[in-house]
């Protein structure tokens, strides 16, 4: 019971952030021609910011189903790595049913917070998921229904929220750890370089290449010992 409640409480900050950011998604989805109901269903079933944004963009440009599947899959491939890394922290004895449910909650922020714990129990993780799911879904609905009254200048300012959250998660550990700082600098450089080169690398591939190059170099140059294992990305 204690674990579930701790999880619930730890999820409050993420839920508030998600609520604000998903307002931006609701706005974008309705402007692409989707109804508030469809936008809300997408948010509830997907629970992923960048994948959804990309998916709705492709829908708006009348892309094919294959194009939609490939792009969203590419952007979401990072979840494979996160789920692998999360699987290493799970408490022993968590069955398949619970794992199927816990997988739904692997997002950048929930994952980062969960990794702040040495061992992740099912009640903690499921508690941690509840409010962010509600916040993300409710914010989308709010954005889709009420968002049109926002002046364009505010809509633009909302666009930065998601990325500012990522910054808030990455910078503190990069400040405390030289290796993390090096990995962050490399990932950012590779990503910017791939975007600047006239190669037309799809954003999903860019993400995967930058991540793998930076993490591989980090693992080779600065292997993590058992002592500093719990250095999670807790904001």
């Amino acid at each position: 019971m204690g674990e579930w409640r701790t999880g619930l409480r730890d999820g409050v900050g993420i839920a508030l952030g998600y609520f604000t950011i998903s307002i931006a998604f609701g706005l974008a989805a309705v402007r692409s021609g989707l109804t508030p109901l469809v936008a809300t269903v997408i948010s509830f079933t997907n629970l992923s910011s960048s994948g959804q944004f990309a998916g709705v963009t492709i829908l708006a440009e009348a892309g094919s189903l294959a194009e939609l599947a490939l792009t969203v899959l590419l952007i979401n491939l990072r979840y494979v790595l996160m789920a692998f890394s999360l699987s290493q922290r799970l408490a022993p004895g968590i069955g398949t049913g619970r794992r199927l449910l816990m997988g739904y909650g692997v997002t950048d922020e929930i994952y980062a917070l969960a990794l702040g714990r040495r061992v992740v129990t099912a009640p903690y993780y499921l508690g941690l998921m509840v409010l962010p799911v509600l916040g993300w879904t409710a914010g989308t609905l709010a954005g889709a229904v009420l968002g049109q009254v926002l002046p364009p200048s505010l809509q633009s300012a909302m666009g930065v929220l998601l990325y500012a959250m990522f910054v808030a998660i990455v910078v503190p550990p990069a400040r405390s750890s030289g290796p993390v700082l090096a990995v962050v600098a490399l990932a950012g450089s590779v990503s910017v370089l791939l975007a600047a080169l006239p190669l037309a690398v799809a954003p999903g591939w860019r993400l995967i290449v930058a991540t793998c190059v930076a993490a591989a170099l980090g693992a080779t140059l600065f292997p993590v010992g058992d002592a500093d294992r719990p250095a999670g990305a807790r904001p």
């Binding site: 890394s85 990522f166 990932a187 591989a216």
Partner: peptide
């Protein structure tokens, strides 16, 4: 170690550029 560094790399590459 690779998995340890992945979240920092992913979030940075998502943000930049």
């Amino acid at each position: 170690s690779f998995l340890h560094y992945v979240p920092y790399a992913v979030l940075t590459a998502l943000t930049l550029p």
